[in-house]
Write a protein that binds this DNA or RNA. Structure first.
Lengths: 212, 212
DNA sequence: AAGCGTATCAAACACCTGTTTGAAATACAA
DNA sequence: TTGTATTTCAAACAGGTGTTTGATACGCTT
């Protein structure tokens, strides 16, 4: 029988390739990742990527998965009515996604790497993941500022928050050299998230206070 | 006569290569930059880089110039006694270095690109530029917090400030897609710097207030 | 002008990249 | 079992990378 849900050998190699690709893309970035290493990890032939996904670009497009980010936003929207608390929760979950090595979702890390040099998939990433995320955080900040802040200033507050969060992932090689004793274990991630939340809440309230 | 300050033809190509290299490294990053493009811009032969600098790594090492960053710190130290004001000035000058297209110092931009993926020169960059910069900003934050903040929290404040600043450079491709109307002209850079300074001052004071 | 060390150049080198090829192996239906 | 379509594979391809080579041109002292 040829049911639509059959798991063929082909599907298995596809899955192995996607899994390996996510790991390698997250580790080396799109440009730095090589098809040969991906195939080595997936125990597949070099030609497999082009057979199953057409090209390296096609592999990246299918390796992207925006579900974890969307889930984060939906869970946060259901977390209650207090915007300050929701911001704290959001930052904590976001940092766990970005930094926790045990976290299965390498998605955020792949996208974080693409921020700097544009890949063919950047437009899609911005449209489907980053723009909604900024929108979401913008609403949250707006509630906290109680509409006392202008649009441009509000947008800059959102950028300040993302800037702080992404810095820890983006500059990891540098931070490791600056503070060799620091490890991204759960306790440290929680402390970082708490700092960013409190730091940012103070900044937002200050922006709202200096009504322009 | 063979004085030590003669400007030979060789020195001229050296200078042209260094100039071209700084531009290409800042634009494409170390990995993305090709020797052939650098030599094309410098109107030199492909073999010139290896003749004058030994290798691509050697070219990067000589292309780095930490003077502008040191000058920024020294000028800031002479700017008066009020630490809040000095932080505002520091952030403004730093952002001008990072974002102003007319700014001659591509140095900061080269280093900013290297943060993400380590190059052979990263250790040198951290030792000679980034570590002193963090040290400097740490002292400034310590004065503002009036010693009411623990070391770990103080360090995180410094990271929050750098995170916000570097985000605008690092995520420029994304921000361009998110807000196509935004331009990094002088007025905008000043506004960004003012926001980051006020946002961060509020955060630092909050940290100092919640004495632990 | 001759000689010598330096600088430049086109060309080639060795290696790595994503991709393609055509044959071999496998899976599946008749 | 036979025939057909799909999947895998080693090998080659075309293009790009940093680097090296050996000849040529140049600048400078004698």
């Amino acid at each position: 029988m040829t049911g639509a849900t059959d798991i063929t050998a082909s599907d298995q190699t596809r899955a192995r390739l996607l899994d390996a690709a996510r790991g390698v893309f997250a580790q080396h970035g799109f440009q730095g990742a090589t098809i040969r290493e991906i195939c080595r990890r997936a125990e597949a032939n070099v030609a497999a990527v082009n057979y199953h996904f057409g090209s390296k670009d096609g592999l990246l497009a299918e390796a992207l998965n925006f579900a974890p980010l969307k889930a984060l936003q939906q869970a946060n929207a259901r977390a209650g009515d207090c915007p300050e608390l929701r911001l704290r929760l959001f930052i904590r979950d976001f940092m766990l996604m970005l930094l926790d090595e045990n976290n299965a979702s390498t998605q955020c890390r792949i996208m974080a790497r693409e921020l700097a040099d544009p890949t063919p998939a950047l437009d899609q990433i911005v449209r489907e993941a980053i723009a909604p995320l900024h929108e979401f955080l913008g609403e949250l900040v707006r509630e906290i500022a109680e509409k006392k802040t202008g649009e441009a200033e509000l947008r800059r507050c959102v950028l300040s928050i993302f800037g702080q969060c992404l810095f820890y992932r983006h500059s990891h090689p540098v931070l490791q050299r600056l503070h060799p004793e620091m490890r991204y274990d759960d306790r440290e991630i929680e402390a970082i998230a708490r700092h960013i939340a409190e730091f940012s809440l103070a900044g937002i309230r200050h922006s709202a206070g200096a009504a322009r």
